[in-house]
Design a protein around this nucleic acid. Structure first.
Length: 765
DNA sequence: TATCTACGCC
């Protein structure tokens, strides 16, 4: 359970006496240790024996015994260099165990006692801070070397770069450090590049990672299993699974065989890309190859089954894992809690939450986030409040993710005002909202039932004192939250619990609030929070929920001030512009193509929905066909099957028209249609609510409306079927073509590019 | 000369 891997000791300089002492140290208590050390003092052979002892105790998590040995060894040693060696080792060992404060203590003592001012001690401390994510501290130590007359060496730079990776420093800044390293005449080695690759992997910068890999080859630096695994991680995190697969396949040709880490990385990559079959196939391959499973690989696969709601298989993995001597840890529980929570199995969530505590597996921030989020999303605010209270009691500190999850839950439930109160509260607690937080808020507009604009024109968050919160105080509902528990979050939860999920407020719809998004956007701008493609999708989705074309177009028009390309395209397509807008749109689509598949499909779904909603159906179809051409949705159609399960309702409808026109052209070219034709809508696993089936209903009414002869398959609720001859007959009817061809409500008639688009549509079809 | 590198859960 160390933070880091144990440092494998290839050091054989120690004597067999040291091994004997290690065994005695392990089997004796703290007090016995002193006796053992004293009695073996004359036999142990200097620093090598002592560092061996420290390292091995550290590898077994016995850091207190290691410190005792260290202090003993330093006291008996008179030579500064030898003391320095002991100190550097001790700092490294404590760093690996995540005991940064202790490591820092050893370092400072060593400095004052005159044996700590070495590049080794500094490097070890940088690494210790880095490993625990204290990047600022790590950099401070690095900078302080110059004042102490020390010159960073290769290992120091490697440690700093590694710390940057773990601390989430931007790639650009790390490259500056790398450049400084080169300028100082320090030549990078394999570990330097591996650490640089790790920086890329965090941000999913797969192209930068590939360039680094080429640079390694260019410099004649050999690759190792770390290089490949880190590169793969970057490529996987960048969502490029096909490329990752190719890279993995080339490993054996370099005599580097994929190991358990390689497989875990790939399996998780496939899972994150939604390619669960590929993920599970790799898992089977790994087992078939006899690669031993570790804690991480078990948890990776378990989380897949949990996410898919395949709990029997998830529990099988648990049993297999425990059978091989690995107990369920906090990650295992978190995955199960998330899985059961997603399916609304609250009883299981509560049972597991209690079980883990009984098993002495301490819930962590993620556990609480999950459990609170699950209950909030389900509208069970009282339970959420109780778990939040427990979370506060155990002394954990909320982070931006927890708050964002809460805010998202409230927004999804249409309670944007409460969400903004939480936003206020987190800011007061000194937690900076990020783009995810704001995306949730934006997504809430049009979803909520409240009419007040919670952001004023200047973009400031208004003071919110809702009627109901004063009501709560009067009724004393927040009574449980007294006794010095002055927590706004708990008060809001209490209020929501009392309102039974705010149902009362949900139904009163006021004026369109969509223009509030401008204020939110302005606020993001002020806080220097950069909107991303999800922000864009959220805005488009808000437009799709807005009844007023004028408000929606005004919003998009105004947003062009912030980003003319993105909002120019959305606004232009909405207004029925074509030629120039379509050229701009192409470069936007190019950018989206670089993103992972679910983000990209969400973008296409949102844009199409918005256009469809405002009657720009042909425009919607152009976008959806562009998405198909760029393979945003995998295997959308063949002559016999149309798969809509990853699409939104607008995208799906535009696609149904396109597909039917496509098979119509097959018929009119004189070819026969396949015997069986299917349209798949899925059963809603990709919708917000599992099993919702909204897409199926939408497609059903579209097909019925056109008189298309498809029927729901008897054995599969997410599948419409028909036969080739029946559909052929319908397509040949005189009125069918007119039904299938889509039109825009608005077109910019002066646009000379219209004909070009018609051609494009014909071509694509 | 002691110091440095990969995978999972919100």
């Amino acid at each position: 359970m160390h933070l880091g891997r144990p440092k494998t000791s290839t050091n054989t300089r120690h004597t067999s006496i040291a091994e004997e002492v290690l065994q005695l140290a392990l089997h004796n208590g703290q007090s016995g240790l002193e006796r053992v050390l004293v009695s073996f003092e004359s036999k142990l052979c200097g620093t090598d024996d002592y560092t061996f002892l420290l390292r091995e105790l550290g590898n077994r998590g016995e850091y207190e015994k290691a410190i005792k040995c260290f202090q003993f060894a330093v006291r008996r040693e008179r030579r500064k260099t030898e003391q320095g060696k002991l100190a550097s080792s001790m700092i490294s060992i404590l760093g690996r165990l995540g005991k940064v404060e202790l490591a820092k203590g050893i370092f400072e003592t060593a400095l004052t006692e005159g044996y700590g001012n070495t590049v080794y001690a500094f490097s070890a401390l940088i690494s210790a801070f880095g490993r625990s994510g204290y990047i600022d501290e790590a950099i401070k130590v690095f900078d302080s070397m110059k004042n102490n007359g020390l010159k960073p060496n290769l290992v120091t730079y490697n440690a700093v770069i590694d710390a940057c990776g773990k601390g989430g420093v931007e790639f650009k800044r790390v490259v500056e450090i790398f450049d400084e390293m080169l300028r100082s005449g320090v030549q990078p080695d394999r570990i330097t590049f591996n650490s640089l690759l790790a920086v890329c992997s965090r941000g999913g910068l797969w192209e930068a990672a590939r360039n680094l890999f080429s640079e390694m080859v260019h410099r004649g630096i050999d690759q190792d299993i770390f290089t490949y695994n880190t590169l793969l991680d970057a490529v996987c995190k960048g969502g490029q699974m096909d490329l990752a697969f190719e890279i993995m396949a080339e490993m054996p040709t370099k005599n580097i065989l994929p190991n358990v880490v390689t497989y875990s990385t790939m399996i998780d990559g496939y899972a994150k890309a939604g390619r669960f079959d590929d993920a599970l196939n790799l898992f089977n391959e790994m087992k078939f190859l006899g690669i031993g499973l570790d804690r991480v690989s078990y948890n990776t696969v378990l989380s897949i089954y949990a996410k898919l709601g395949r709990f029997e298989e998830a529990l099988d993995i648990c049993r297999e894992m425990e059978g091989s001597g690995i107990r369920k840890d906090v990650v295992t529980y978190n995955a199960l809690l998330g899985g059961y929570g997603k399916q609304g199995k609250y009883d299981e969530v509560r049972r597991l939450f209690e079980e883990m505590k009984a098993q002495k597996v301490s819930p962590n921030l993620l556990t609480y986030s999950t459990v609170i989020d699950v209950h909030s999303k389900g509208g069970l605010y009282e339970e959420a409040m109780n778990v939040f209270r427990e979370f506060k009691q155990v002394g954990l500190k909320a982070d931006v993710v927890l708050y964002s999850a809460l805010i998202d839950a409230l927004c999804k439930n249409g309670l944007v005002e409460s969400a903004v109160s939480f936003l206020d509260e987190m800011t007061k607690e000194g937690i900076r909202p990020n783009v995810v937080t704001y995306n949730s808020i934006i997504d809430a507009f049009g979803r909520s039932a409240t009419s007040e604009c919670v952001f004023d024109a200047g973009g400031e968050i208004s003071e919110l004192q809702t009627e109901s919160s004063s009501l709560v105080i009067e009724l004393g509902i927040e009574g449980k939250a007294t006794d010095g528990e002055d927590n706004q979050i708990i008060k809001i939860f209490g209020q929501l619990a009392a309102e039974k999920g705010g149902q009362a407020k949900k139904d009163c719809r006021g004026k369109q609030e969509i223009l509030c998004i401008l204020g939110v956007f302005q606020k993001m701008h002020e806080l220097e929070i950069k909107p991303n493609v999800v922000t864009f999708s959220a805005i488009l989705n808000a437009c799709s929920r807005c009844d007023s074309f004028e408000d929606a177009s005004m919003l998009l028009e105004e947003l062009r001030l912030f980003d003319n390309q993105v909002y120019g395209v959305a606004h232009g397509l909405l207004m029925g512009c074509r030629e120039n807008v379509w050229i701009q749109a192409q470069s936007l689509f190019d950018e989206v193509k670089l993103m992972d598949s679910s983000t990209a499909s969400a973008f296409y779904n949102a844009l199409t929905d918005m256009l469809w909603h405002f009657g720009q159906k042909r425009g919607a179809q152009l976008v959806v066909l562009e998405g198909k051409r760029r393979q945003v949705w995998e295997n959308v159609w063949s002559n016999s099957c149309l798969d809509l399960h990853l699409m939104s309702s607008g995208a799906a409808r535009a696609m149904v028209h396109a597909w039917l026109l496509n098979i119509r052209s097959i018929v009119f070219e004189g070819h026969e249609l396949p015997k069986l034709l299917s349209i798949l809508t899925g059963w809603g696993k990709h919708s917000k609510v599992v099993g919702d089936g909204a897409l199926r209903r939408t497609v059903e009414s579209l097909l019925t409306g056109m008189g298309a002869p498809f029927q729901l398959a008897k054995c599969n609720l997410g599948r419409f079927v028909s036969t080739g001859p029946v559909v052929t007959a319908w397509l040949r009817e005189s009125g069918t073509l007119k039904l299938l061809v889509l039109h825009d409500d608005r077109t910019q008639s002066e646009n000379a590019g219209f004909g070009q688009i018609s051609n494009l549509q014909t071509l694509t079809l």
